[in-house]
Design a protein around this nucleic acid. Structure first.
Lengths: 266, 266
DNA sequence: CGTACCTTTGAACGACATCAAAAGTTGTGG
DNA sequence: CCACAACTTTTGATGTCGTTCAAAGGTACG
């Protein structure tokens, strides 16, 4: 516990000012700024957001950021780590709706007064930048650049959900797995894989992959084996080696038109 | 062709003014206004949108409103009829991503400069209110109420896509069909069915239903027969009779928490 | 009245699920 | 450093749900 001694007012003001500068600097140096809700805020005006934000939060792997049904009073930007957005189906089965990767903004929902429609779970140790809902909502009502940008951002999320929907309903198991791997590669690197034998982080269990694309972990294991035997990939303990990038792209059924990139809209 | 005779300037001004008033009146009387992008615009300021909009467009059943890959230069509000938003999978199979019903706003996408990511097809004769993209985008940049509202609207669409995703991957065929029927009932009536033997419009073919929930038309037929034999529904040529509403809700696996309602956010 | 499309039904097949068990991996505490 | 418990991954055998193929009614529309 820090001492609760009352500071003289002038000293407190100095401290507050210093804190504001700290926050502004943190925002200015933030590597996620270009991709999250802050993107349209010019550097000169970053205080509008810097003043709003709560202190960065560390979430251990496996912990919930928020739970389905809880009140929705914070939105988040991912600074580090992976977060899974999941829903629990009545029969006990979980479904992964999406992943939030570094730079992604998540937690926003249409009915912002209502309960959360999904849970957010850190699947690696994560560092998040929380924004209070109320503050963001009033910012949205006054700053058209931010709210217009947010509308586009959410539309990109919607497009991803649609992509996900096509992938999960209109393709076979091997294609689904390949497509997911491509998507997650793309979201980390903002391009499709092209260099042979490239190794990327993929901190997912087979169970998670299965819940993302509507398969059982057992069947995902079989599909990964098949892709391995075809010389396309090797997956082991959180690392994915893409031995044959074009083979993987072919297996995924992705055409020339690449996946939507959050950084290129507008 | 109307005569191209040059009118005297003062007469033209009178005509323009009359046209503006016509448009404003049409907006003020529009039954969709409360639900679409115009909702946050107060009646007094409706000219901002009325001036923007293009003349209402009629689209015959079966015609495309726009095609996947085409440039995205208009957004739409549905005034009458049903529109299906679809994507064509490389192997020729179509997928229905969502339906736009009267009052729904559609055609907005995150990457507004890029090609359309989906096709829109009128599945009944439809009447649409088109808005030019450019005009809406500048309106979004200047009017925070409109853009904040749009962000929430799109987030509701995203939530529906997630719901759709859960439905298509985590449930059995009978549940999927029942769930879709419930969802479409809800979107027309803004409540769950409760009165026995109620009859609603459902202008869908079995093939469309199948493409929406990831089944073949053949199997949809079997599931509808099963539900009919269970005394839950009767479906025939565009009309759905919900004989046993609670039976249908039970079959769909929907819990107490009802579907998200677009009209109740904020 | 005939054509085109939608729906229904049956039979056989296949993809993925389920069940079960073993092998590998991680983390924990002695 | 080792031993043990919890979890993840792999593999096989079997079962089932939904697809595919095929053909016969229905229904709308010109």
């Amino acid at each position: 516990m820090s001492p609760t001694v009352e500071l003289p007012r002038d000293l407190r003001q100095v401290l507050d000012a210093a804190r504001t500068i700290d926050r502004r600097d943190a925002c200015l140096q933030c590597r996620s700024r270009a991709r999250t809700i802050c993107a349209p805020v010019p550097a000169a005006a970053i205080d509008r957001l810097a003043r709003l934000k709560l202190p960065p939060r560390r979430v251990p792997a496996g912990d919930q950021v928020y739970a389905e049904g809880a009140p929705c009073d914070e939105y988040f930007t991912v600074l580090q780590g992976w977060v899974a957005l999941t829903t629990v189906h009545e029969d006990g089965g979980g479904v992964v709706l999406d992943y939030a990767l570094p730079g992604d903004f998540f937690g926003f929902q249409g009915n912002s007064e209502g309960p959360r429609a999904q849970s957010a779970i850190a699947i690696t140790p994560a560092r998040l930048c929380p924004l209070p809902r109320q503050g963001v909502e009033t910012l949205l009502q006054t700053d058209p650049l931010v709210s217009a940008h947010l509308a586009h951002l959410v539309a990109v999320h919607e497009a991803r959900a649609h992509d996900h929907l096509v992938n999960s309903t209109a393709r076979g198991a091997r294609e689904r797995v390949a497509h997911l791997l491509i998507e997650l590669y793309f979201r980390q690197n903002h391009c499709l894989p092209h260099r042979p034998n490239e190794i990327i982080d993929l901190p997912l269990t087979l169970a998670l992959i299965g819940e993302t694309i509507g398969l059982t972990a057992v069947h995902v294991s079989r599909m990964l084996r098949r892709l391995r035997e075809e010389g396309v990939i090797r997956f082991r303990r959180g690392k994915l080696e893409i031995c044959d990038p074009y083979g993987l792209i072919g297996a995924s059924g992705v055409e020339a038109r690449p996946l939507a990139d959050e950084t290129t809209h507008q």
